[in-house]
Design a protein around this nucleic acid. Structure first.
Length: 556
RNA sequence: GCGCCAGUAGCUCAAUGGAUAGAGCAACAGCCUUCUAAGCUGAAGGUUGAAGGUUCGAAUCCUUCCUGGCGCGCCA
């Protein structure tokens, strides 16, 4: 609907420009069509006249405001488009449209015909690699990772729906010092659970759990080997143990990955060396103090970054560079990294690598989500993996349904710090916003079940019977779904879809409160209303599904 | 000190540069013999941190400042 209006507006501007004798028509990319907040301004409005007023001013003999004069000209052309009951001009140059009833009914018909595909995009051919969570296997997932998981999975669903080919990937840092540190931490606990672990070791209680699990898994001889032989095996076994635990958490949360990408595999395949060679070959490296530096400052980073330490060890940055190089080598057009705000420093250097390797800046999009503060009984809980003080995601999942947790994580822009109120997410009442939307779906399901006998008398719904104002409002709202999903996809902002769902639920519940769907003495109207209700459930249900939230048939 | 993010109703937050800044909680007054009240109706709540600037129009863009979060290792 919006597209049609936008196209008609652009046509009108072109025609007006031709008539007025402008050397060239104004750029239509700045035109917008939107739904005014105030219903008195019609269903849609465009700013085209105000945007073009300057270009037209020298060519129009306007008495007053040129924007207003231009709006009048455009409005006259647009009212002939056939879409509208009324086209009005309002100061300082808005053109407001009232779409005809016939068009709305036609739109509802299309929603019903398209079903769950309503709002879906045609295949774009774009291959997107969405990497998220990617928490190091040195400790369990905590409540912050939950935000990345919910966000990444929702974003993946939205992009898929819009026609991209999306892969969900988890990068497993299963190489390097931290894995060794994990091994040392576990070893220390195995030898003496009471002893102070060596400097730098992980201190969380989970280390003891891992130690116990390994004791059950391996025979005493396995542990009796000399430390230099045992430690590498122990480190890996511990990491695997933790990884399995993270997978279990994510599974409970309903987040699944297409690929778990191992950092070790990058070393095994020689990709890390190859990436360093590529950077060196491009002239982006230099040696200093015995270390190999990458000149990331050439692309705006604060300082150059070390690839190879003076001792010959590779940094994590080196394997990260190889990993990202591989993403494009594997044929992805766009790589999206979803990271916590504490990884902010990572942004500039990784963008620099991508550019140095000759890929466009726009091929990598890093989304930083601000940190999560968990509130329990009004008090914030501090998190720090190192000190072992954190709230595991598991704890949240033990107390809160996955639906409530997901929705809670997604209500806000990734740019704002999230206060996750455990009490609210746990509540099975109106404090918990997820139910507001789910209740829409459940209500429709119950209505349709109740209506079944009546509907047998009116097999074909006559949608033109839907003349009540809230019915119109509901149809107009459904018309906005494709746009809401597109905005969420384009802006990497799933919370916009959440906002649309909340709005839709509000309109629906108001309608539900004021009108009955099942009218025994009026099968025709029953059929029409049920068709509308069904459309609402299909579309809202699709929205929930994209966000990874279930669509219940009843609330109990 | 430098960089990123934020500052909007009592609280938590929305708002592709658009018209009278919106929801949800909380608090107030009502509505269940009905397709589930996890809902609805009504009233109330604001100098969008501050000051300048850009323009037809700014919560939104630019500059400066204030406050808060995060980050600034040859750690991971």
């Amino acid at each position: 609907m919006k597209e049609a209006i936008l196209a008609a507006t652009a046509d009108a501007v072109r025609a007006a420009a031709l008539e007025a004798g402008l050397p060239e028509a104004p750029d239509p990319s700045r035109f917008t069509v939107e739904r005014p907040a105030n219903p008195a301004f019609g269903h849609f409005s465009t700013n085209a006249a105000m945007v073009c007023a300057k270009s037209f001013a020298p060519f129009l003999k306007a008495k007053g405001s040129s924007a207003l004069a231009l709006a009048e000209i455009l409005a006259e052309k647009l009212s002939g488009a056939g879409l509208f009951d009324r086209v009005e001009v309002k100061a300082p140059g808005f053109i407001n449209f009232r779409v005809s009833f016939r068009e709305w009914i036609g739109l509802l018909g299309r929603v019903l015909a398209e079903g769950p595909r309503y709002g879906a995009g045609a295949p774009t051919g774009r291959k997107v690699l969405l990497e998220f969570v990617s928490s190091n296997p040195t400790g369990p997932l905590h409540v912050g990772h939950g935000r990345g998981a919910a966000w990444g999975d929702a974003m993946a669903g939205i992009l898929e729906f819009l026609g991209d080919e999306v892969s969900r990937e988890y990068y497993v840092n299963d190489a390097g010092n931290q894995i060794r540190t994990l091994g040392l931490s576990v070893l220390s606990r195995l030898r003496d659970p009471q002893a102070e672990p060596p400097e730098g070791c992980y201190l969380g209680a989970y280390v003891l759990d891992v130690a116990e699990a390994l004791k059950r898994k391996f025979p005493p001889e396995w542990f009796a080997r000399p430390e230099e032989e045992l430690l590498p095996d122990l480190s890996l076994a511990a990491a695997e143990e933790i990884l399995a635990d993270m997978k279990a958490d994510l599974d409970r949360f309903g987040v699944r990955f297409d690929r778990w990408f191992s950092e070790r595999s990058l070393f095994a395949s020689g990709e890390v060396d190859a990436a360093i060679a590529a950077l060196r070959g491009g002239g982006w490296t230099y040696e200093k103090d015995g270390a190999l530096f990458f000149r990331s400052t050439a692309f705006g980073d604060d300082k150059d970054r070390v690839l190879v330490k003076s001792g010959g060890d590779l940094t994590y940055f080196a394997s990260d560079a190889a990993y990202h190089r591989g993403k494009f080598a594997r044929g992805y057009d766009l790589a999206v990294d979803v990271l916590g705000a504490d990884h902010g420093g990572y942004l500039a250097r990784m963008s620099a690598v991508v550019q140095a390797l000759g890929y466009g800046k726009g091929r990598l999009r890093i989304v930083l989500y601000q940190l999560v503060r968990l509130l329990r009984g009004g008090a914030a809980v501090k998190m720090s993996t190192r000190a072992g003080e954190f709230i595991p995601l598991k704890t949240v999942l033990d107390e809160v349904t996955p639906d409530a947790a997901r929705f809670m994580y997604l209500t806000q822009s990734h740019d704002s710090a999230l206060e996750f109120d455990l009490e609210a997410a746990k509540a099975r009442n109106s404090e918990n916003p997820v139910y507001y939307v789910q209740y829409l779906c459940a209500r429709v399901f119950q209505v349709l079940a109740k209506a079944a006998p009546v509907l047998r008398q009116a097999p074909e719904p006559n949608l033109s019977l839907l003349t009540a104002p809230p019915e119109q409002e509901l149809i107009v709202q459904l018309a906005g779904f494709p746009e809401a999903v597109r905005s969420a996809g384009r802006g990497f902002a799933p919370h916009l879809l959440v906002a649309w769902l909340m709005e839709t639920a509000g309109i629906f519940h108001r309608y539900y409160g004021a009108h009955r769907f099942v009218l025994e003495d009026d099968p025709q109207l029953t059929a029409a209303r049920c068709a509308l209700a069904s459309a609402c459930r299909t579309v809202a249900g699709k929205g929930l599904e994209l966000l990874g939230v279930s669509v219940p048939e009843r609330m109990d």
